[in-house]
Amino acid sequence: MKFNLTTFALAALLALGAGVVHAQDDEPAAEKSAVDDTGSAADKAAARAARIARKRALFAARRAAMARAQIVVPAPAKPTIAPQAPAKPIPVDQAVPVDAEAPLDTLPAIAPVNEATAPAHEVAAAGPSHEGSAQPGAGHINHGEGDAEHLADHGEHAGFSAKTFALQLFNFGVLLFILIWFGGRAMNKSLRARHEQLKGDINEAARLRDEAAQKFKAQDQRVADLEKEVAALRATLRQDAEREQVRLLESAQERAKKIQDDMRFQLNQQVKEAELLLRAEVATASVKLAEELVRKSMNTDDERRLAQEFVAGFDGPVGSGGAVG
C-alpha cells in the first residue's frame, strides 16, 4: 500500500511538474494534456492492477474447474497448518462441465472437493505472506495457493483501516503542501499571464472583429452607393459635355464673327484702295486732259491775261493770285 501511494504521488508530482513546465512555456494545449496525463497515469495504474487481478482470478477459476473435472488426484500435499485428508476421486458422471470462456460471475458455484483445500485457503488468507504457503510440484496445492492469494487480495480491498486512511490523508496533505509551496506561485503567475494573454487576445479579436464589421459595413454601403455614384458621374459627364459643346459653339461663333469682321475690313480696305486708285487715275487723266486742252487753247492773250491776274494778285494777300513759295 505504501509503495502504491508513493508511486501515485510521484507520478502526480511529475505530471504536475510537467504541466507547470508546459504552462510556463505558454502552451495551453500542453497544459491541458499534462492534466490529462496526470489523471490517465493514475487510472492506468489502477486499471493495470485490476486487469492483473482479474486475469489471476480467471486463471485460478479455470484451474479449479479443470481440477474438479479430473479424476486423478495428485499426491496429497503436506498441510501447512493442519493435516489434510486424502482427496477422494470424483466420478466422471458427477463432473460438471465448465465453459472456459464464460465470465466468472456466470460460473456455477463450486463446492469444496478437498477438505484440505479450504483450510489451506483460510490459512493462506490469514497468513502474513503468500509465498510461504506455496509448494512447487503439487498441482492441487498450487490451486489452493492461487485461491488463497486471490482471497488475500480481496481481503485487503474489502477491509477499512483508519490508520491507512490517516496515512493516506497525511500523504495527500504533504503532497498538497508541496504542490502549493513549490508550484503555487509559478502556477498562479503562469495562470495570470495566461489570463492576461487570453484577455488581450480576446480584446484584440474583438477589435479586429469590430474593424472587420466596420469595413464590411463600409464596403456594403459603398456597393449600395455605387449605382448612385455611377449615375452622378454620368450626369456630371453629360453636363460637362453639354457645357463643352456650348463653349465650342460660342468659340466657333466668335471665331466666325472675327473672320467675318476681318474679311469685311479687308474688303473695305481693298474698296478704299480701289477708290483711291480709281480717283487718282481719274484725277491724273482729268488733269492730263485739261493740260492738253489748255495747251491747245493757250495764246498770247491768255498769257497776258494770266500775267495781269498774277500782277493783280500781288496787290492782294499773298497767294491770292497764285502759289507763293
Binding site: V287, R295, G322, A323, G325
Partner: peptide, 26 residues
Amino acid sequence: LIGGVVTHVAGMVLDGSVASRLSNLK
C-alpha cells in the same frame, strides 16, 4: 508752265502758272 508766270524774288517764289493750278486741282 503751260501758262501764267512764276517769279523768284528776294528768296520767295510767286507761282501763278497754269501747271501749278492743275497740280492743285489734281
